[in-house]
Amino acid sequence: MGIKVVHYINQFYGGIGGEDKADYTPEKVAGVKGPGMGLQAILGDEGKITSTVICGDSYFNENVDEALDTIIKMISEENPDVVIAGPAFNAGRYGVACGAVGKAVVEKLNIPVVSGMYNENPGADMYKKDIYMIETANSAAGMKDALSKIAPLALKLGKGEAIGTPEAEGYMPRGVRKNIFCEERGAKRAVNLLIKKINGEGFETEYPMPVFDRVDPAEPVQDVTKVKIALVSSGGPVPKSNPDRIEASSASKYGKYSIAGMDNFDPSNGETAHGGYDPVYANQDLDRVLPLDVLREMESNGEVGSLHEFYYTTVGNGTSVANSKKFATEIAQDLKAAGVDAVILTST
């Protein structure tokens, strides 16, 4: 028994028609259609394309939500082990549809997806992080080559086997860092790189430096005596004994804690959960990380409007950007809902 495969293609490859039929609504047919025949030939006994979903490119792109709902339902009914979308070569709307269908299948059905397209197809940049995307030629002249890479990768994905490197399998790098053991230790690799760089030979970095998002600062507060201020920190300030067990490094959560009725931190009511700096001074007086004492004073002197009832905290140490973004999105929504006007962000 081979694995079950569903194939997604557009109206052109489905044999429905060209641009004049691009508004074709989703349809599921049993067995293979168009490029599916070539795929099935390579899959052989190891995999079977049980059905093919066909959708017009214009229809898909003009009715994305509706189209996706229908297509996901059609695919879900088949309960496949893997979904293949395309290949789309340099057809832009088709590429975007393959990517969007693939992403939805991965997210909603938790089924792996492989597609294929030309690297300048807009669908490639949009979705190569979400699904496996075989790099193809820019036209259907490259069909044979594309299918010869898509089918073996689909089999591996469908069987849950380990996936090799982008170069070995032919897919576009997805930006996921995975650990590998090398034959030479790091120090030797560094010396090798140094020699190549000195000699002006070609060299390859093991880690291409990231490009960061830059966030424009918000407009300054006009009158600080009128605003409600909240405290948010990545320095790990928590109530004594860290009730929510926020991790010392690589935090998976943030905390929201009340400071109603509190004027000051001391060793009995606060500490830091952060593992990345000397905690002794923060544990002696947590106001050093979260300046509650000073803000209370300013609040009672009328120098600031008011202090929000809760503070929000996590540990920045070794915490991924993805987790940080998720925490910040939730915290920001909560702050907005509570009518907070300004935030003091403390680090360590």
Partner: peptide, 11 residues
């Protein structure tokens, strides 16, 4: 300081 053999690669 490259004492070990571990590295990482973009997949």
């Amino acid at each position: 300081v490259g004492y070990g053999y571990l590295s990482a690669k973009t997949y």
